[in-house]
Structure formats: C-alpha cells, structure tokens
Design a protein around this nucleic acid. Sequence first.
DNA 1: CAAAAATATAAGTACATGCTTATATAATAA
DNA 2: TTATTATATAAGCATGTACTTATATTTTTG
Lengths: 108, 108
Amino acid sequence: MMDWEQIAECHKALADKTRLRILALLKVEELCVCELVEILNMTQPAVSQHMRKLKNAKLVKERRNGQWVFYSLDGSIYPFFQSVLETLPKMRSEIEELKKSGRKVVCD
Amino acid sequence: MMDWEQIAECHKALADKTRLRILALLKVEELCVCELVEILNMTQPAVSQHMRKLKNAKLVKERRNGQWVFYSLDGSIYPFFQSVLETLPKMRSEIEELKKSGRKVVCD
DNA sequence: CAAAAATATAAGTACATGCTTATATAATAA
DNA sequence: TTATTATATAAGCATGTACTTATATTTTTG
C-alpha cells in the first residue's frame, strides 16, 4: 500500500501545466530534453528541472543514448496514472510540427 | 474537453497530505468541519481553508444543515477522480473513533 | 586533447502555499 | 436580544515552487 506522502508527491508532480503537457507529449513517444525545449519553447534548465521532478515522482524514466537523454512514461506504481493520462489533451500535432521542422533527434 | 489549467488545479488540490486524508474520510461518509477538526486534530481555520480549496477544485460539494456545513465528495467532472480515491488508504476506523467518543454530529 | 552539443546543477528572485492568530458571519438557544 | 456554537475570512509569516542566469558535467567530434 502507498503512503499519504508518496501519493501527495505524485500529485505535486502533476500539479503544473507544463509537466502535464510534457506527459501528454511522452504519451505519443519518448523525447529528449532538447526536443521538449523546442516544442514547449522554454529554456533548457527549466525543462531539465521539470524532468527531475517527474523522475523523482517516478512518473517518467530516462534512457541515455549518446549525448541525449530520452525520457519516457513510467508511473506504473500509481494505479490511477493511466486514467490521468487519458484525460490529457492530445499533443500529436506538436510532435508532427517538430518532425516537419527537421528538429527531431535521430540517433542509433 | 478540459483545459490544462483546470487539470493542474485539480492536482494542486490533491497535492497535499491533509486534503488527501479529508477525501479518504469523505469516502466513508459526509462530514462537517468540526468533525474533521476532531479527527485530523487541526485548527478550525486550517480545515476550513482546505475545504475551500477542495470546493474550488470541484472535488467536494457542501450542504448546509442548521449551523453545520456538511461536505461530501463530488469530483464527477474528472474522469480519473474515482481511481484516485480508490488508491487512498482506508479511514473507516478514524470515523468509528469519532462515533465512540460521542463527538459525531447528529442533526435532522 | 580541445571544441561543441546536450544535459544537469546552483544561486537568486518573485510568487504560491499552509499554517497561525484575530476577527467576521451565520444559525441556534437561552 | 444576547450568548453560544459552527464556520469563514483576513493578515502575517515561514517554507516551497518555477522561473532566470551562470556554470558544471558528460559525450561526441575534429
């Protein structure tokens, strides 16, 4: 069973418009920080700090590939996480824009 | 469809240990402020301020009966609210304690 | 190795949050 | 009507949050 503090921590991570948008973007596909910087039009440290909060709350996991760090959804420890994600507005078009602009990171 | 700001507001309301406990208590039955003050062992203004946040986020609704204001769960506008509630630790025993101590409010 | 690119961390600042105490409002009871 | 009980609101304060700019770390490339 989960304790009060941990459930509250999870909702603190969800209690910010920018982090909700990040989660909605990761629902489409994994993304690295520099891609999120482009899409969200925010500074790199601001995005990095949001990712740290999401990671500490165990809502995302990271995977390093070369110079990039790719983030993807996790959240499996919270039974309600999936249904929170389903409520978020769709962000597919923002990622399409990124691809069209040629700024999608391609590696491997 | 719900906007980012409103979803974030909802999670801000859920991002506090005390408010999560209040919701878990209201899952058992509707309660008035003075009962919550007893159970949570907090000052009355502190509880009132938490109830205002929950009400503004549309997670609870209020019903006045005489000098008491009874709060009960709402949250129907958020598709994920029910599954958030199901994750919360049980609080049935705390309300049993209140009844045994003779501090349960009886009216009508 | 030195330079470049991606990311993380640190310090500073403005604003939000959760409590406190004091006071206001509302309904009931004497 | 006056006192009592329940609740709400307001102001003040300590702490937390989300950004900023500056700098550190990590990996790749020449």
